[in-house]
Simulated scan of single mutants.
Amino acid sequence: MKTIVFISDLQMPFHDRRAWKAVLNFIGDTKPDEVVNIGDVTDYPQPSRWTKGTKLEFLGGTLKDSAFTRRHYCESVRKVHNGAASLLGSNHGMRPALYFAKNNPALLDDDHPNPYTEDRLLRLDQYGMDFHEDFYDFAPGWTATHGHLGFSLSRIAGGTAMNAARTIQKSVVCGHTHRAGIISETKGYRGKVRTLTGLEIGNLMDMRKATYLKHGAANWQQAFGIVRVEGSKTFPELILINNGEFVVNGEKYHA
């Protein structure tokens, strides 16, 4: 049986350090076959549309933040996990490349690709990590995607993943919303049925560092996902994190 750990939305350097350390401890202890980051591993606030024309846009920091993520994500994962690992494209991850293409189009051509794509900024090839720009079909009837590619967003945890599953007619693991939930729908009759599942895996961000919330509450949950694959069968599981701690198979993990 293959075990895949899915994590999402650390948004470094605004991640929850205790929760991330606990997840790293879990990965190192249980030795999954694969670790998949659903995206938004780096926040990249400087080149976002929200900071256009403001002081933050001109402070710089994209290269510094990329180096931070390489050190605290890529290197940290490789210290505890030497198996398959990958990162999916996401809205935050696209920010540097889109910013460069919009403001420096004269510097791009077929012989000089965009140097600020996320896989290049994080030097994923040096860490033996794959990059999937949009979808990653990791098991029969299942795919992973960040969740930003035009799917209908839901306020109900798990609902966005389920909306994506209905759209593409595959079970889906996604992030993006910072919400954590799992929903399944079964259709058919007389035993001839088909089930689609949406697994929405929350976030590992420190909400206190999300200054745009203006000290308000958000419908976010910290979590990560585990999917076990045996042939054509899949067994998805959502692991909720409570104040930097969680339990899997009766074992508590913490920083």
Results as ranks from 00 to 15, higher is better:
residue 165 A to I: 02
residue 195 T to S: 07
residue 159 G to K: 08
residue 151 F to E: 02
residue 214 K to F: 14
residue 150 G to C: 11
residue 157 A to D: 01
residue 149 L to G: 05
residue 153 L to G: 03
residue 159 G to M: 08
residue 142 W to T: 01
residue 164 A to C: 12
residue 207 M to F: 07
residue 189 Y to G: 06
residue 156 I to P: 00
residue 205 M to K: 09
residue 168 I to L: 06
residue 140 P to W: 04
residue 154 S to F: 04
residue 188 G to H: 09
residue 179 R to Y: 05
residue 198 G to I: 02
residue 181 G to S: 05
residue 193 V to A: 04
residue 210 A to V: 15
residue 208 R to T: 14
residue 173 V to C: 04
residue 144 A to W: 01
residue 148 H to C: 11
residue 153 L to K: 15
residue 183 I to T: 05
residue 173 V to W: 00
residue 152 S to Y: 07
residue 160 T to C: 09
residue 143 T to G: 03
residue 203 N to P: 01
residue 172 V to I: 10
residue 154 S to A: 10
residue 182 I to A: 09
residue 161 A to R: 04
residue 161 A to F: 07
residue 197 T to Q: 03
residue 186 T to Q: 12
residue 163 N to S: 14
residue 172 V to S: 00
residue 196 L to N: 00
residue 163 N to C: 09
residue 196 L to C: 02
residue 203 N to Y: 00
residue 177 T to Y: 03
residue 151 F to T: 04
residue 150 G to Q: 12
residue 177 T to I: 10
residue 145 T to E: 08
residue 182 I to R: 13
residue 208 R to Q: 14
residue 170 K to R: 14
residue 199 L to G: 00
residue 176 H to E: 10
residue 193 V to L: 06
residue 216 G to C: 11
residue 210 A to G: 01
residue 141 G to Y: 06
residue 207 M to W: 05
residue 205 M to L: 14
residue 188 G to I: 12
residue 216 G to I: 05
residue 189 Y to E: 11
residue 208 R to H: 11
residue 199 L to M: 07
residue 205 M to E: 02
residue 203 N to K: 05
residue 192 K to C: 04
residue 153 L to I: 15
residue 141 G to A: 12
residue 183 I to K: 07
residue 201 I to M: 09
residue 214 K to N: 15
residue 147 G to D: 01
residue 172 V to K: 00
residue 214 K to H: 14
residue 199 L to H: 03
residue 146 H to M: 12
residue 145 T to C: 15
residue 160 T to A: 11
residue 171 S to V: 08
residue 194 R to W: 07
residue 156 I to C: 02
residue 162 M to Y: 06
residue 200 E to Y: 06
residue 207 M to Y: 06
residue 179 R to F: 08
residue 215 H to E: 14
residue 207 M to C: 11
residue 163 N to L: 10
residue 153 L to P: 01
residue 162 M to W: 07
residue 201 I to W: 00
residue 157 A to G: 03
residue 180 A to H: 04
residue 208 R to N: 15
residue 174 C to G: 03
residue 164 A to L: 09
residue 150 G to L: 13
residue 156 I to L: 10
residue 178 H to Y: 12
residue 164 A to E: 03
residue 203 N to S: 15
residue 163 N to P: 06
residue 215 H to L: 15
residue 142 W to G: 02
residue 158 G to M: 02
residue 193 V to Y: 07
residue 173 V to S: 00
residue 180 A to L: 08
residue 170 K to H: 03
residue 151 F to Y: 15
residue 149 L to A: 12
residue 212 Y to C: 12
residue 141 G to V: 10
residue 201 I to L: 07
residue 149 L to H: 09
residue 189 Y to P: 00
residue 142 W to V: 02
residue 150 G to V: 13
residue 144 A to V: 08
residue 184 S to C: 07
residue 184 S to M: 06
residue 209 K to E: 02
residue 192 K to E: 07
residue 181 G to H: 02
residue 209 K to R: 09
residue 188 G to Y: 09
residue 164 A to V: 10
residue 215 H to I: 10
residue 210 A to P: 01
residue 167 T to S: 11
residue 216 G to P: 01
residue 218 A to T: 08
residue 175 G to A: 11
residue 172 V to N: 00
residue 192 K to H: 12
residue 185 E to W: 04
residue 203 N to T: 15
residue 186 T to E: 13
residue 215 H to W: 11
residue 184 S to T: 13
residue 192 K to Q: 11
